[in-house]
């Protein structure tokens, strides 16, 4: 405490000239700043690590469950009881990304927390004073986290694939990466998480409140589909049809291996979810640019 400089000494002035010669804010620098921000909050790093562990774990669990199901089905006595259970063989190919729903929950919440906590703690004022044009700061944060979400999702699915094979092998259910749609499934597990991250962070940016943002995100991703499927479906014929365009349904289609009749294809699903994410992103950018911080 006692050791405090009062006036800049010549050394500082020299450093000043060196520093002042560099140009100012550019997008790469803002990206680097946002990368530092994401990686220097211990709880964020812990959350991300747990997400990977849980997603890979769920893939293993699901692989094991599938083998058990198959054993039951091959036993004539038990087969009657598991009637209506999905055909095990058609499920194995989606095992790598079976942690996707859980991943969406964690990544969506974390995306909200990352931006809303800036408002909560006052950090946003430092951010916006350093990058007063505002939009680059938000875009950089979105991009950094979307990339993290993609790598995390695709990586977990990839790891999930390899973890699942030895579990499936005894039941002769092991499958190759070249099986139809498997690679796309793995990659899109990452894409869905990246798009959900953008969607959730945009909601967090609009609401500027962690609790409100998390509730809204979970509501949109997990509650609205249930409401639509149960309560609202009876009201009008077009409602179940429109439900295909909800972000959650679009995400499901992106990682699907077989496409049911009338359902969106992987590509259409990607378009719909991207539409949701981009629309919310654009609104959040416009609002943030206009509103006081």
């Amino acid at each position: 405490m006692a050791h405090t400089a009062t006036a800049p000494n010549p050394e500082h002035t020299a450093a000043r000239r060196g520093a002042a010669s560099g140009p100012g804010v550019n997008f790469l620098r803002v990206l680097k700043s946002e990368w530092i921000k994401v990686t220097t909050i211990p709880s964020t790093v812990i959350m991300l690590t747990s997400t990977v562990v849980i997603m890979v774990g769920l893939a293993a669990l699901f692989a094991w469950q599938t083998t058990v199901l198959l054993d039951l089905q091959s036993n004539p006595e038990m087969a009657a009881q598991v009637q209506g259970a999905p055909d095990a063989t058609s499920l194995v190919a989606t095992i790598p990304g079976s942690g996707l729903v859980f991943g969406q929950l964690l990544i969506g919440s974390l995306a909200v927390v990352l931006i809303a906590s800036e408002w909560g703690t006052g950090m946003i004022r430092s951010t916006m004073v350093a990058v007063p044009k505002r939009i680059p700061a938000l875009l950089a944060k979105q991009l950094v986290f979307a990339l993290i979400a993609f790598v995390l999702g695709a990586g977990s699915a990839f790891a999930g694939y390899f973890v699942a094979q030895p579990i499936l092998a005894p039941s002769e259910l092991a499958f190759g990466l070249d099986t139809d749609g498997v690679l796309l499934h793995i990659i899109n597990t990452g894409s869905v998480l990246a798009l959900v991250a953008v969607l959730a962070m945009s909601i967090g940016t609009l609401l500027r409140n962690t609790a409100g943002g998390v509730v809204t995100t979970i509501g949109l991703l997990f509650v609205v589909p249930i409401l639509v499927a149960t309560l609202l479906a009876g009201i009008a014929d077009w409602i179940p049809d429109a439900a295909r365009f909800l972000p959650s349904s679009a995400g499901e289609q992106m990682v699907a291996i077989t496409i049911a009749d009338g359902a969106l294809t992987q590509g259409q699903g990607a378009l719909v979810l991207t539409g949701w994410a981009l629309a919310l992103l654009v609104v959040s950018l416009i609002v943030t640019r206009k509103r006081d911080v």
């Binding site: 140009p23 620098r29 921000k37 350093a130």
Partner: peptide, 28 residues
């Protein structure tokens, strides 16, 4: 500008906060 005390994320260290701020301008 010092606008109000603690315009800083509470879970980040002072050093990392300054590093993140400095990065936006390429300040070493």
């Amino acid at each position: 500008a010092l606008l109000d005390a603690k315009a800083v994320h509470t879970k980040r260290s002072a050093y990392n906060h300054l590093r993140a701020m400095a990065a936006t301008h390429g300040i070493p």
